[in-house]
């Protein structure tokens, strides 16, 4: 457990010193929200689509975060060093996952705030509980898929364009579930709260499945080639 926190802390410290999340990823995510508004050009449509747009923007921006979390390991064979330092590979995975979860939570909170300001969505007290649950479970799922597929393409040439192609289809259930649950939390007339809660169950299953898969396959993905 200590190793997990050490790896997470290391990633977050590197991130904090570079402040890439703050100066690049968050502005990019908000820009996507603005561009959606420009493209759809209808306030009624925006309010109706807000939940889906928030999660789509979160997915795009999350890929940047994940990309970054492996790029910092590429230089000077840092990942190999990390793996030789008696740390069990799955703990490195959990550490990286934790750091990505932390960053994505910030990202999604900012995006939901953006939706409130830009798209005019409103959240009441009952909706807020659902919203927080949805954000936490969906972010864990998003981060686990990202950390796992980031490891699949780590150190390969052309990984920047590979990651979206590989991760996006896998994230489809998450996009569907998180969008519907958030839609319910935003007080949409199409989905009631109970159905929204049902979707969080799917999100939880998704998060558990891909966290387990990541922990199981991380050793294979990172071991040096014979």
């Amino acid at each position: 457990m200590r190793n997990v926190f050490a790896v997470a802390r290391k990633d977050l410290v590197v991130e904090w010193r570079a402040r890439l999340l703050l100066v690049r990823v968050l502005p990019f995510a908000l820009l996507v929200l603005v561009l959606f508004a420009v493209a759809l050009d209808s306030e009624a449509l925006l309010e109706r689509a807000a939940a889906g747009l928030v999660w789509l923007a979160a997915m795009f921006a999350a890929l940047l975060v994940v990309q970054r979390c492996y790029d910092i390991e590429t230089a000077d064979g840092a990942l190999d060093m990390l793996l030789t330092s008696v740390v069990e590979p799955s703990r490195v995975f959990f550490g990286k996952l934790l750091a990505v979860v932390g960053q994505l939570l910030v990202l999604v909170v900012v995006l939901v705030g953006g939706a409130v300001v830009l798209y005019g969505v409103r959240v009441d007290a009952a909706g807020l509980v659902l919203l927080v649950t949805t954000v936490v479970t969906a972010v864990i799922g998003l981060a686990s898929v990202g950390t796992l597929y980031g490891a699949v393409v780590a150190q390969l040439t052309g990984r920047d364009s590979l990651l979206p192609l590989l991760a996006m289809p896998v994230l489809a259930p998450l996009l569907i579930g998180a969008s519907r649950a958030t839609e319910a939390a935003f007080g949409s007339r199409t989905i009631d709260l109970a159905t929204g809660w049902a979707w969080t169950a799917l999100l939880a299953v998704f998060a558990v499945v891909f966290t387990a898969a990541g922990a199981a396959s991380f050793a294979t993905l990172t071991e040096p080639d014979a």
């Binding site: 393409v153 390969l156 040439t157 052309g158 590979l162 192609l165 590989l166 996006m168 289809p169 896998v170």
Partner: peptide, 14 residues
């Protein structure tokens, strides 16, 4: 789409 991605990984120079 998933398997198109799989093929893309296989084509990588590694």
């Amino acid at each position: 789409i998933t398997y198109v991605g799989y093929l893309a990984v296989r084509r990588i120079d590694a």
